[in-house]
């Protein structure tokens, strides 16, 4: 169990982990690390680590097949070792719900209409949890879908805005989530000005709500730019490797 810190914002305006309110955790992205999957990605926001694997479009089992588009299946799951105490590997109510919520946030972005009667599977596995897992999962899913070559309307990403000690903070971690006054995860595709997930836990005033939304879009734009860099550089690196053999 985590201890509640006395103060969430210290005298110099820094948060429990030394970040400024508008600062993201250090983000790491990697793609193409699973051989069997059509596309895969590992994304870390600070200590939160999520791996995503995408399969398909592939042949549907009869009962999930849709006549006009590909059926999208999303599984969000937390590894038994992802938390401080062992998490029972059986999908919990929360995980089943998050799978549904994530699926619904992917549906407007993945172009399923080109592949009728097929299935696209997105698996996200939380390897290490330190708050904001659903938003990291969205970012990982975005990269894995792009890596798999499944047509998507745009790259997307997620970030959670929180409120601690009356201050709005970007990309909250576990402690800020657990003891904070509000938690607002958002998934969006900034290139299309499209928000696909918007949740709020806690209380925000109308002005705070507007400010938090602007902060989130700003942060997601930064995250999506990182995704673009990751994708572009992973293919450029292959370029260089090939040229070395000349």
């Amino acid at each position: 169990m985590m201890v509640r810190p006395e103060k969430f914002i210290d005298g110099s305006g820094r948060r429990v982990d030394g970040r400024l309110p508008n600062e993201l955790r250090p983000i790491k992205m990697q793609i193409g690390l699973l051989k069997n999957a059509n596309g895969s990605a590992l994304v870390e926001y600070g200590l939160t680590k999520v791996i995503a694997a995408v399969y398909g479009p592939r042949e549907s089992q009869k009962f999930v097949s849709l006549p006009d588009r590909a059926s999208l299946r999303v599984r969000y799951h937390m590894a038994p070792f992802s938390t401080e105490e062992r998490k029972n590997p059986v999908p919990t109510r929360r995980e089943i719900e998050l799978s549904k919520v994530l699926r619904e946030s992917l549906e407007p972005i993945v172009m399923t209409n080109y592949f009728p009667r097929t299935t696209i599977d997105v698996f996200v596995e939380v390897l290490q949890s330190d708050g904001g897992t659903r938003t990291v999962a969205a970012t990982a899913a975005s990269l894995a879908l792009a890596d798999a070559g499944i047509p998507i309307k745009a790259l997307f990403g997620g970030v959670a805005i929180g409120k601690v000690d009356g201050v709005l903070v970007v990309d909250i971690n576990e402690v800020e989530d657990m003891y904070g006054d509000a938690d607002m995860p958002i998934i969006a595709a900034p290139d299309l000005s499209l928000v696909t997930l918007y949740q709020l836990n806690g209380v925000l005033s109308k002005d705070e709500f507007q400010e938090a939304f602007d902060m989130a879009i700003n942060a997601i734009t930064r995250i999506v730019n990182m995704e673009k860099e990751t994708l572009k550089s992973s293919y450029q690196v292959e370029n260089k490797e090939g040229d070395l053999e000349k």
């Binding site: 792009a146 047509p151 309307k153 745009a154 790259l155």
Partner: peptide
């Protein structure tokens, strides 16, 4: 190299191919 969602100018999407689309 272009990534999903990037604007491409001067190309018309055809019906068959889903690599580019109008938004």
């Amino acid at each position: 190299i272009v990534v999903p969602g990037e604007v491409i100018e001067g190309i018309t999407p055809s019906v068959q191919e889903f690599y580019v689309f109008n938004y």
